[in-house]
């Protein structure tokens, strides 16, 4: 049996480790997982590294340095299936704020000798560099979803990961909508489901941790349609869209600045 156990590797790029820790957080299932796969490369859990190639790789983090841009190619080469986990790996993470500013300015504020810091101007998702087989959204990713994706890949079936907005989960869970009933701004209608609508369940609006939902049109949500109902100033709107998925939502933000050409509230044309 052992010889046929698939191997699993976990890789880290620019990230906070939260998504990898989700794997360790699968307390009840971790032993089962270790029985089904050989965890061959997982530095967060063990220094022992078995040589590749690996059947499945979980990749956390974004690409922010020239070294990482090289290393991800190596990871791709030694991986059968490559799954990216979390907002950094799928969208560039909060560190992608640098994409819209001057990274050298940031560096000079943080480091005493910024000239020793080799860094790229941008923070980009893994998919901008190599082919990715599956992207799991979230900041951090959801434990149940990670187990679902791993179970699916082990079985050779499609994972049940829905791309519709958080509102679907929110309604199935029986939450009272915080936007409608309390006037709390909520990004749920434009955000990829997966968290189980945790924030609205505790009376808070959705922060968009799982990134934009592709459910509306052309792989994008209708951010422009939601924004006027959030009851926020343009500044507040920009800030709420500029968190863990800033680069993914920035496309929306950019669009928000364009004049609306998609129809008006007027009566139908004469």
């Amino acid at each position: 049996m052992d010889a046929t156990r698939p191997t699993l590797a976990v890789w880290k790029f620019a990230s906070c480790d939260g998504c990898q820790l989700t794997l360790l957080d699968c307390e009840d299932e971790l032993l089962t997982l270790a029985g089904e796969v050989e965890i061959a490369h997982f530095l967060e859990a063990s220094d022992e590294v078995a040589p590749g190639p690996y059947d499945v790789s979980l990749v956390e983090g974004s690409i922010t340095t020239p070294d990482d841009a090289e290393r991800i190619r190596h990871v791709r080469e030694v991986s059968g299936t490559l799954i990216t986990i979390g907002a950094c790996a799928t969208a560039g993470g909060v560190q992608a704020l640098r994409n819209f500013a001057d990274v050298r300015e940031f560096a000079s504020l943080v480091y005493a000798s910024p000239e020793y810091v080799a860094t790229l101007d941008t923070s980009t998702p893994i998919s901008a560099h190599v082919r990715v087989d599956f992207e799991l959204q979230g900041c951090p990713i959801d434990r149940r979803q990670l187990l679902e994706v791993l179970s699916a890949f082990l079985m050779g079936r499609k994972p049940n990961i829905s791309q519709h907005p958080v509102c679907f989960e929110c309604k199935r869970r029986g939450n009272v909508c915080v936007m409608v009933a309390h006037g709390t701004p909520c990004l749920g209608p434009i955000t990829h489901a997966g968290c189980g609508a945790i924030c609205p369940a505790y009376g808070r609006g959705c922060y968009g941790c799982f990134g934009p939902s592709p459910n509306w049109s052309d792989g994008r949500p209708n951010t422009r349609g939601l924004v006027p109902w959030l009851d926020m100033t343009p500044d507040e709107t920009e800030r709420v869209l500029s968190t863990f998925n800033v680069a993914a939502f920035r496309e929306e933000d950019h669009e928000l600045r364009q004049p609306d050409t998609r129809g008006t509230d007027d009566d139908p044309p004469e």
Partner: peptide, 19 residues
């Protein structure tokens, strides 16, 4: 009808109405 385009520009496809 043109009205469907107009309402689609406001609709979020969030599914709340059906739920």
């Amino acid at each position: 009808y043109a009205r469907w385009d107009e309402v689609a520009s406001r609709c979020l496809s969030c599914g709340n109405c059906t739920m």
